[in-house]
Design a protein around this nucleic acid. Structure first.
Lengths: 222, 222, 222, 222
DNA sequence: TATGAATGAGCATTCATTCAT
DNA sequence: CATGAATGAATGCTCATTCAT
C-alpha cells in the first residue's frame, strides 16, 4: 500500500563518481530486467539482488526501497526507449524524392522501437502499476513519448510546409501517424510475447502509412 | 405468514447475498473489483473474500484457486465489455443522411466503451499478466474484441458497398477506425486513472473520425 | 475435487440393506484405509468421506469427530489382526511328530500375520499417535496381542508339559518366540514398505525358531 | 495492531542463543523436540520456531523447508543415538571371568540406549513417516543401527572364537541378542510414554540374556 | 561501505467442524 | 437422516526491510 504520499526527492541526483557507480548500474540493470520480466508485484528484491550480484542491503543503501528502485528502473527504461525513438526519427525525410518510401522508412524504425522488448516492458509496467503509482504516467510521458511525438510533429509540419502533406494539426497528425503504424502490433506480437515476423511488420506498417497518406497526402502531388 | 417461525425469507440482499448463485456472483464481482484495482499479483484472496462478504474458504469451494478465480473474473469482464461494445455497434448507420454525423455517433459510443472502467481494467490486467498467463491473450481476444472488430468491418463494408466509403480491406479499416478514434484516450484519461471530460472525448473522437473520412470517405460524395 | 465416486457396491454380507449400518461400515472401511495409508495427522476427513462415498457430515453424524473415527478404525484393524493371529495359532501342534516342523508352520503363519499390511499399519498408527492418545496402547494391547500371546503361552506350556520344551516361564517364552520369529521382518520389509519375498521370510522365521529351540528345546529329545 | 512495533528481545537471553551456530543448533534442538512430540505431519514450523526462540523465516533461511528440517533433525537424533549405542558397546567383555555378568552389563546399557527418549522418538518418527519418506529407512539404518549391530556381531564372534559362545552366524546372533534384550521394553514403557522402572528393566534384560545364553552359551563351559 | 542474518507481516491454501435445508 | 455449503483457524512458505558487524 505504498502510494504517492510523500513528496519525493528528484531521482537523478547521484553525482558520486566514486567507482561504486558500477554497482549502482548493475543494480539498475538487474532491476530493469527483473521488473520487465516479472512485473512490480511479483519481482522480488532478492531476485534483483542476486541478478545484480550484490546483497539485498546494498540495494537499499543505493536506491532506497522497492518503490524507489522501481521508479529508477522505469526512468532508465524510458530514457533508453526515448533515445532509440529519437534516433529513429533522425531518419525522417526532409525533402523526399519518394514520400511514401521515406515515410515507410521512418515508420518501420518507429514500429521497431515500439515492438522493442524494453519499450514493450515499459508500457506493460506503466499500465500495470498506474493505479498504485499514478504519478508515473506524467513523469514518463513527459520524459519520452511526448518529446518524440513533438519531434515527429515538427517533421511532419516541415513536410507540410514543403507541400508534401496537408495538415491542420501536426501534433494530432503525429499521434495518428503513430497510432496507425502501430495499430496491428499488439496483435501480431501477442501483447509482446512473440517476436513479430519482419514481413508482417513491414506489411502492417505499410498499411498504416498508406492510410496516413490517403488522409494527409497532398492530393495534387499524389 | 405471521412469522412465528424462524424461517428465513430468501433474501435477495445485494450487498451480501446469501443465495448460492448470489454468493458466487458476489465473489466474482469482488474479484473483478480487487483484481482491477490491484493487479493479479498484488490482489490478495483475503481482500476479495472480505469485499465479497464471504470467507476465504468459500472462494476456494466455489472457484478453485487464485488463478482460476482470476480467469473467471477476466472472462466475466470480457463478456460484459463485449456486450457493451456490440450494443454500441448496433447504432451503426447503414444508410446515413449525414455520414460524418453517423460515424461520430458510433465512434463516440465505441470510445465510451473503450474508456469504460471495466474495459480499461480488462486491458490493464491482460497486459499486466500476459507473461504469466500467455494463453489469456487469444482467449480474450477471440471472445470479445475480434467479434467486435469483425462486426465493425462488416458494417464498414456495407457502407462501402453503398458508396459511402472507399475501402480495400474492411477488417484493416475497422482496426484503423478504432485506432484513430481511441488514439488520444489513454492520454486523456491518464491511462485510465482520470475520468475523461466529455467535451474532450468528443473532440478526440471527432479528430479520429475526420482522419478516417479523409482517408476512406468517397471523394465524390464529400 | 470432491465427490469422486458416490455409488459404492452394496456389501452383500450386510444385514441392513437399507444403508444405515452399511454406511457406517463403509465409513469405517474407508477410514481404515486412509488412516493406514496416510497416518492420523495427514489423513483428511474429506478423503475418508470421498472414499466412503458419503458426505463429510454423515461421518460426523455416525462416528463423531476425527479422533473418535480414528479410535473406531484402530479398534477395527486391531480386531481383524487379532482374528487372523488367533487363526494362525490354531495351527499350533499339540503332539507333533516333528517339533521343529510344527513350530516352523505356526511361526510362518504368525510371521505372515505380523507382516500383513493391516497389522503393519496398526503398529505404525499406534506408535505414531501414542503420544497424542496414550490410552490407545493399553486398549489395543488388551484387545489383541495380549490375547494372542497368552494363547501362544498356553500352547507352549502344553508342549512343555508334554516334554517337548523346557520352559520356566511360558508367557515370557511366548514373547521371546515372537520376538525371535519376527526379528528380521522390519528390515526385510523396509519397515513395511516392501513385500517380503517368501523365501526370505521362511529363512528368517527358521532362524528364529532354531534359536528358540536351542534355548528351550528339550535336550533329551533333540 | 498499527505500525511496525520494534519489540526487541533482551540481547543476553541465554535460553535463546544469538550466535550463528547457536541459532542453528537451537532450531535443530527444537525441531527434534517438537517432531518427537507431535510427529511430522502435526508438528508446525511455527511451534518449532517459537520453541527455538527464532522467527519462522530464520528456520527457512537455515534449513530450507519442513522436510529438510525433518531430515536434519532425524539425522541429528540418529547420530546421537548411534554415539550412545557405540559407547555402550565399548563395555563389551572380551575375556569375561563371568560371561553372564559381562553380557548383562552390555545388555543393560544397550537396553538403556533403546529405551532412551531420543532413541524411542527416532524409531517412532521413522516408522510414522516411512510411507512419506521411504528413503529414510536405509539412510538411518546405515548410519546407525547397522554399524552397531555389526560391531556387536564382531564382539560376539570374538567371544565365540574364545570358546565362550557357539555361533554359526554372528550377525544373526547379534540381531537376536538385541531382539531378546529389548523384547519387553515397548510393553514396559507403554510404547515410550512411561519411564521404565530400573528393576523391571534389569529383569527384562536378564530374561533376554538368559535365553540368549541358553541358545548360544558353550554348554561345556556353562 | 557491503553484507549475512534475522524478522514481522502477509500469502495462498487446507481442514475439521457446523448447520440449514 | 443425509448433505451441500460455509467458515475460523491453522499451515507452510515468502518477502520487503532492518541492523550489527
Amino acid at each position: 500500500m505504498t502510494g504517492t504520499r510523500k513528496s519525493r526527492p528528484p531521482l537523478t541526483d547521484e553525482s558520486h563518481p566514486n567507482g561504486r557507480v558500477g554497482k549502482r548500474q548493475a543494480i539498475l540493470e538487474a532491476a530493469l530486467r527483473v521488473f520487465a520480466r516479472e512485473g512490480y508485484g511479483q519481482a522480488s528484491v532478492d531476485t534483483i539482488a542476486s541478478e545484480a550480484g550484490v546483497s539485498k542491503a546494498t540495494i537499499y543503501n543505493h536506491l532506497g526501497d522497492k518503490e524507489t528502485l522501481f521508479r529508477h528502473a522505469l526512468a532508465e527504461i524510458a530514457s533508453r526507449s526515448n533515445t532509440k525513438t529519437m534516433d529513429a526519427l533522425g531518419a525522417f525525410p526532409t525533402h523526399p524524392e519518394d514520400l511514401r518510401a521515406g515515410l515507410l522508412g521512418v515508420a518501420h524504425k518507429l514500429a521497431e522501437c515500439f515492438a522493442d522488448d524494453q519499450s514493450t516492458a515499459l508500457r506493460r509496467l506503466l499500465q500495470s502499476e498506474i493505479v498504485r503509482f499514478p504519478d508515473l504516467f506524467e513523469t514518463i510521458r513527459d520524459s519520452g513519448p511526448n518529446q518524440a511525438t513533438e519531434a515527429l510533429a515538427g517533421q511532419l509540419a516541415r513536410l507540410a510546409n514543403a507541400g508534401y502533406l496537408e495538415l491542420a494539426d501536426p501534433l494530432r497528425a503525429a499521434n495518428q501517424f503513430v497510432a496507425l503504424i502501430v495499430d496491428e502490433l499488439p496483435t501480431l506480437s501477442a501483447l509482446g510475447t512473440r517476436k513479430i515476423d519482419d514481413a508482417d511488420l513491414t506489411k502492417a506498417v505499410a498499411a498504416g502509412v498508406d492510410t496516413f497518406l490517403r488522409a494527409f497526402g497532398n492530393r495534387a502531388t499524389l
